[in-house]
Amino acid sequence: MQFDNGLPIYLQIVKEMTLRALSGAMEPGEKIPPVRELAAQFGVNPNTMQRAMAEMERDGLVYTERTSGRFLTREEGVLAEKRKSFAREETEKYLAYMKKIGFTTEEVASYVKAMGEKGEETI
């Protein structure tokens, strides 16, 4: 994974792991690999990965079972909340951009709808 070095790396890892959960790349209740293994995968140091895990635990995205390790949450509510906040963040960004180049909210809405239905080349 390519990091933006201007942002705390542990937060970027939290975001990436959350995306994996939302996109179905990870299943609810799936076992999370050990910290050292994940750290090697991401090319970061284990402390950074540990911090990311602690953050995800605080968020309720993962939970720890004392003897068997960490797991992705099974609670739909937690994932639904995350989905909402991710959607809001991206949409706000997109809307601000579209308004900047001269679209109204209504125009954006119909543009998005048309794009979704027909694909880019027909617009």
């Binding site: 933006d4 070095n5 201007g6 942002l7 790396i9 937060l11 911090r51």
Partner: peptide, 15 residues
């Protein structure tokens, strides 16, 4: 700590 520095300055360590 590098992540604290990033959060406080908004810069990469290199910057």
């Amino acid at each position: 700590q590098v992540d604290i520095l990033r959060a406080e300055t908004g810069m990469s360590l290199d910057q």
